[in-house]
Amino acid sequence: MNSADKKRLLREMLFARRFEERCYEAYVERKIGGFLHLYPGEEACAFGVLEAARPGHDYVITGYRDHVHAIKCGADPKEVMAELYAKETGSSKGRGGSMHIFDVKHRFMGGYALVGGPFPLAAGMAKAIQMKGGDEIAICFLGDAANNQGTFHESMNMAALWKLPVLYVCENNLYGIGTRIDRSTAVIEQYKRVSAYNIPSAQEDGQDIEKVYKAAEKAIKHVRSGKGPYFLELMTYRYRGHSMSDSNAYRGKDEERMWSKRDPIIMLRDRLIEAGELSKDQYKAMDTEVLEQIEHEIIAFAESSPEPRVEELHKYVVAENDPWVHGGVQGGVRGGVK
């Protein structure tokens, strides 16, 4: 990772931070409905891992805290914001919402809202990759609390058994909704839990993007070389509550202050400034530029986009005009009952 890469990543993370903060405002203004799970504090996880991967080539899947992962994979932030605004121009045409961002053309295979649901889906994508013989891998981002679902164990077992090319990234933010990890989980260190399935794993500081990048490079090399799954645990913290309906009453201000000193953006910024590769003014200009882009391009696009039409309510429930629904076409002759 050279200096230009670091500066680009700093801007990408800053953009993600401001994007999510703007979502918060839009939610308060009731422009965004439903549940909204925000990512501030955890940016180094998605950006560090996906920087080491091949976004747009590798298949990425995650839970409901999904905006930033989609954007790093290549999704147009305007379409992500339009989705949050429930507009027809949104990435899921206003049918999905915050928890269901999809951008399949960039191989972002979606956000899913059942905790632990993506574990087997990722294993299945890896099975398909293995069958087709490509060099892609599947990458699944989920939080620590997902590891208490049965799908975690079922998927780790199958991924190891069949040596599937899948990287599981555990974003350990220490809370499952509002319950601290030591109150819900017998084994605190998540990377140890996959040793039961002989899956190699590591734990890394999820606030330092350079460390995340290095750990992910190693993990991805393992998976891409056909050696089977890998589990990477990243220690991180979310600044906001679990979702917008969360008052954060279950954790102390001291803890929040401690983690704010390890902010992934500030850490990288200060490192670049100390090294003389970035000035404070340059950083301020970067921030101004990001804020303007979000306001003038992204919010403006979402605001001005049309809503989905009620006449198209039933679109996308099943495949349209699928010949096999009606008995198919075999040798030009329609099958089915004569």
């Binding site: 298949y59 899947i61 295979m109 649901g117 574990f119 087997p120 889906l121 990722a122 294993a123 299945g124 994508m125 890896a126 099975k127 398909a128 990759i129 293995q130 069958m131 087709k132 599947a138 049965g150 799908t151 079922e154 998927s155 077992n157 199958m158 058994l161």
Partner: peptide, 26 residues
């Protein structure tokens, strides 16, 4: 064995695995 797969007794897991594989054309 790659195409005729004996699964572990993990119904939700292997059904989900099939769904994920189907996403990619399997």
């Amino acid at each position: 064995a790659e195409r005729v797969i004996d699964t572990p007794i993990s119904e939700n897991g292997f059904t989900g695995l099939a769904v994920g594989a189907a996403f990619l054309g399997v």
